[in-house]
Computed example of a mutant assay.
Amino acid sequence: MSSRHRSGSGSAATLIVVVADIMAFILGLWIVMYLLDANRANDLVEFVRDAARWLAGWSYDLFTFDEAWARVVCGYGLAAVVYLLIGHGVAGRVRRL
């Protein structure tokens, strides 16, 4: 394969990894903000919460632990791990093209 083609797939793989990492970072940031009882009236906290809820829409209410903090850590944490695994896995496949 030509080096031009490989650099294109490398750039695409890098973009995929960066997007997956940003998604996981937002989810992790919301977990930390929740655990530290961040001021929900703050615009940044509200933005992070809304973004995390959107990203973890499929998992944030998946678990029914009695403790709210455990539901947040597991629900949002699961989404973060899945995004990292899928993003890095797809990027690895793209790099091999």
Rank of each mutant, 00 (worst) to 15 (best):
91 A>H: 09
36 L>S: 13
74 C>N: 15
40 R>C: 05
34 Y>I: 01
82 V>G: 04
11 S>P: 10
72 V>N: 08
66 D>Q: 02
48 V>T: 14
25 F>V: 02
96 R>D: 14
40 R>D: 14
70 A>H: 01
40 R>P: 09
47 F>P: 15
18 V>G: 01
90 V>P: 15
65 F>N: 10
15 L>M: 15
11 S>D: 15
4 R>G: 01
85 L>T: 05
30 W>S: 12
44 L>W: 11
73 V>D: 14
45 V>Q: 05
69 W>Q: 10
45 V>F: 04
7 S>R: 07
95 R>D: 14
41 A>D: 15
28 G>H: 05
77 G>N: 14
18 V>D: 06
47 F>A: 15
69 W>D: 13
44 L>A: 07
37 D>L: 02
2 S>I: 01
26 I>L: 14
3 S>I: 00
23 M>P: 14
62 L>Y: 06
5 H>S: 13
8 G>F: 09
62 L>V: 03
36 L>A: 11
36 L>I: 04
97 L>E: 10
67 E>A: 01
5 H>G: 08
67 E>V: 00
95 R>G: 12
56 A>N: 03
7 S>F: 07
29 L>T: 03
45 V>R: 06
71 R>L: 00
67 E>W: 01
55 L>W: 05
75 G>E: 11
76 Y>E: 13
42 N>Y: 04
37 D>S: 04
59 S>V: 00
56 A>C: 01
38 A>P: 12
63 F>A: 02
85 L>V: 11
84 L>C: 07
20 A>Q: 13
18 V>C: 02
86 I>Q: 03
25 F>G: 10
68 A>L: 13
24 A>C: 11
73 V>T: 14
73 V>I: 12
73 V>R: 14
51 A>S: 15
81 V>I: 10
97 L>P: 04
3 S>F: 00
32 V>W: 10
85 L>A: 12
53 R>C: 04
13 A>C: 15
53 R>G: 05
15 L>D: 13
21 D>K: 06
9 S>E: 06
20 A>C: 10
60 Y>H: 04
51 A>I: 01
96 R>E: 15
8 G>V: 03
89 G>E: 12
94 V>I: 07
91 A>F: 07
42 N>E: 06
86 I>N: 04
17 V>S: 09
65 F>T: 02
63 F>D: 04
15 L>T: 14
91 A>Y: 09
13 A>Q: 13
68 A>V: 11
59 S>D: 04
70 A>G: 00
11 S>V: 10
85 L>Q: 08
71 R>S: 01
9 S>P: 02
15 L>F: 13
3 S>H: 02
16 I>W: 07
17 V>E: 10
30 W>T: 05
94 V>W: 11
60 Y>F: 00
35 L>N: 14
18 V>F: 02
69 W>C: 01
9 S>G: 07
47 F>G: 08
44 L>M: 06
